[in-house]
Design a protein around this nucleic acid. Sequence first.
DNA 1: CGTCGTATTGATCCTCGTCAAAGTTAGTGG
DNA 2: CCACTAACTTTGACGAGGATCAATACGACG
Lengths: 246, 246
Amino acid sequence: MQNLDRHIAFTEREHRLISALESEPFAVARGDTLWHPDEVPRHLYSLHRGWACTLHRSEDDAEQVLDLHLPGDVLGLLDFTFTTHYTTAEMLTDGVVRAIPIAGIHRLFQAAPRVAMSLQAATARQQRNITQRLVNVLGNDACSRIAHFALEIHHRLAGTGMEVSNRFTLPLTQRRLSQLLGMSEVHVSRTLSELAERRLVLRQRQSIDILDFEELARIANFRPERFSDTLNPAFVGREPPTSPDL
Amino acid sequence: MQNLDRHIAFTEREHRLISALESEPFAVARGDTLWHPDEVPRHLYSLHRGWACTLHRSEDDAEQVLDLHLPGDVLGLLDFTFTTHYTTAEMLTDGVVRAIPIAGIHRLFQAAPRVAMSLQAATARQQRNITQRLVNVLGNDACSRIAHFALEIHHRLAGTGMEVSNRFTLPLTQRRLSQLLGMSEVHVSRTLSELAERRLVLRQRQSIDILDFEELARIANFRPERFSDTLNPAFVGREPPTSPDL
DNA sequence: CGTCGTATTGATCCTCGTCAAAGTTAGTGG
DNA sequence: CCACTAACTTTGACGAGGATCAATACGACG
């Protein structure tokens, strides 16, 4: 479960407990689903390579995209305590994942409290992404929504320590974008054109290019400082113990 | 922290560990805030009486309501692992709360794994409320949004084991409703009138009356079975131990 | 009884959804 | 390697849902 130790440095023992639980990495293809609605959650999935998204399908076949998942993310955190999945998880690209059986999680809670705290923290971080999107959708018009989204993804990518270029690949169709931001497919296209004309962001193919951070942040009401990802020291107990306890 | 043991029955010892942490109950007034954005989270709050909401204030003074909190809810679960609060928490009515210092939480994780699991479960449940709202806002028009919301709140109320009447009090102004559902204040009023005319829901003062469940559920795409609140048995490890381990 | 927060109603405008068609890219198989 | 198809994107025209502005009405409360 990479990325889990982003905030809390695990000991050797804690690492071993986790990897004992994980399956071997296996390949998944674009369009594959990791789970379906109403299924009983059996695994978390650690996303090693590729992008995924979680989405909601209503009975009239409308789909709403709830969150995007980048390499390094753990999928299923929001659902695994329930008897049934609420969402569908679908791969946006080919990728590689590992499965973590949920039946093993409660042992982690017992044997490795700091891993449990990491889970709690990771869950809250995914939660904040979704809350962010809710704020975006509740308060912004089409233009600002896309602006906000572009900055948000850029910020998340930067957080993984990958790259910080203004240009990055974004494996999303405009349909998916529209389902993510609550607007029609057509209007996404129009708005993207407008943003390109205003020299704010440029999108082509599967990539996106942020041209004017300042202006985008202004119209989107985006304050990156509000996205500070760091752990509450009070939660981890002042000084997080970094010395191994094995 | 009432409501935490809704899914996992605590032992005597676990109960004692929790109440050792909690402050005495104290009164709060309508309009009081429990925390502000950018503050360092220091407490969770267990809501004994009254309603609250968490909301986001953008710099242009626009507000988006993120979630409602009913008596029994624990507030702050979504923020407490971060260094800064993202939201504001505001009392919608007078009420009574208890504070739980976050500095004590990591001891709970160490000493009482099953309490930690409860926290994880409770966090996920609040998460699902918000995800629900996101789906609602992304996919529905004004009418369906309000329909969905009415059913959602009814469902949550019923879940607390309080009442199951079709009529219940809802301490929300139309302004707050509009901020919750992403529509203008004026349009909330209009839509409520329309719903009343169609004999679907009736709202007056601080109360709401659901007239036609079937039809509401239809236009709102609301499936209560999707809201099953029960714990994943795999997560708690098959048979949740109910015998005390003190 | 006046004042302030809240709710209703009407008129107008505009953002955005819908429908439809054409243009583009990617993927497939011969 | 090219033709064929399906998926995706762009563009236009039109209309509807909902925002905005403004005025009025309705409480609640001091």
